[in-house]
Computed example of a mutant assay.
Amino acid sequence: MIITNVNMVLEHEVVKGSLEVREGRIVALSDTLSQHSSAINGDGAYLLPGLIELHTDNLEKFFTPRPKVSWPSGSAMASHDALMISSGITTVLDAIALGYINDHGTRLANLERMLHTIVNSQQRGVNRAEHMLHLRCELPNADTANIFETLVEQGPVAMVSLMDHTPGQRQFVDSEKYRTYYMGKYGLNDQEMASFEAEQTAASEQWSDANRKHIAASARERGIALASHDDATVEHALESAALGCAVAEFPTTVAAAKASHDAGLQVMMGGPNIVRGGSHSGNVAAAELAREGVLDILSSDYYPASLLDAAYMVANMEDNHYDLCQAINMVSLTPAHTLGMDDRGSICEGKRADLVLAKPNDDRLQVLQVWREGERVF
């Protein structure tokens, strides 16, 4: 396959020309246009490396499209996969929450069903994108470590994150925002919410520290990338670095983000934070971290299209120093390096032909075609 007349977004520069693929790999790049009759004409659009998503819980909304509605697993996975690939995402880490403590939610009920569906569909080769597992470990829970040890052996786990959503810290330093969020999410009244807060706080005091140390050590032994979650202080960042974390997921303050970045962690923020202009929880805006030069990776989190939208917005902001190549690296090359996946993440000879053809449309890039390992999947 030859793709020509494209602006190839490479690691450090944009080159207009052509690209050749054989047996799923990029074998040649050229700064000239191909005259081969079978060449795909990109009409001057951008050719990007396939995007790599480290943290998305998008699958949940397909398993439970409405409260108390359970959708068939195969159909849910196919719909989720199609949405990811149409957003230009060719490698997906599906985030599965374990150790969740509220029985009113659906995550616990869906846990094994979702995990089995992700692993089984990938093994059968029916997915358009390549799907792996991201185990999100809620630390203030008696069963979290045991559940982790069971699930980590069941599929291709590429990342583990350490979460603690206890009120008054990290994501929810503002307890009022905590109450607003969970009362709205689970329909709790004031008395139920007060009981829920007390239970969370007590569980965190009993289990969080032991679970954090156990799961971090287990992930290190297995060579699985480890991520902190919602670090809010310099002390949090230093603790995460000492545990061996490679990624700082969604730090909530500039201080925590800077400390994480300085300690060698890759600072990851949500694409929706960029697109919406701020955090829905009232925490630090991702654009502010971009201005500080400490934004390393973007994640679509709960909205797949936000990954490419956010990268393109970062590249076009006037108050930071990220050009288009650097912005696209945040959703491709840097995530690949973080996971130790040297076979993908950039347009380079020898790399997998995971490619996205996209053109500017108003203030975003519109995905036109997608290839994974040289096979067109969108």
Rank of each mutant, 00 (worst) to 15 (best):
L162E: 02
M163I: 01
A158C: 04
P360D: 13
S346N: 09
I52H: 01
G223Y: 10
H134E: 01
I215A: 07
A336S: 09
S121Y: 12
I2N: 08
M268A: 15
A248L: 06
T253D: 07
A82S: 10
N189K: 09
L368V: 02
D309K: 13
T338H: 05
W207K: 00
M77G: 02
E373V: 05
Q200W: 12
V6W: 00
M132P: 03
P72Q: 13
S240A: 15
A290C: 12
A353T: 02
V160T: 03
E318G: 15
V69L: 11
H134W: 02
G277Q: 09
A45W: 00
L339K: 00
Q369P: 00
V126G: 09
N329Q: 13
N211I: 01
A242Q: 14
S30M: 09
V15Y: 02
L29H: 04
S161Q: 03
N102A: 10
S175R: 14
A353R: 01
H104T: 09
V370L: 01
V267A: 09
L368R: 04
Y312F: 12
G74L: 08
V370Q: 02
L243E: 07
I118H: 02
M317A: 12
R291Q: 15
S228N: 10
F378N: 05
W207R: 01
G125W: 06
H116W: 07
P272F: 00
L108R: 07
S240E: 07
A310H: 09
N7A: 11
M1D: 09
H214K: 14
L48N: 02
G44L: 05
I40W: 13
A290F: 08
E23T: 13
D143I: 01
A145W: 00
R179E: 15
E249Q: 05
E192Q: 15
A225H: 06
V294C: 15
E349G: 05
G44K: 02
V152S: 07
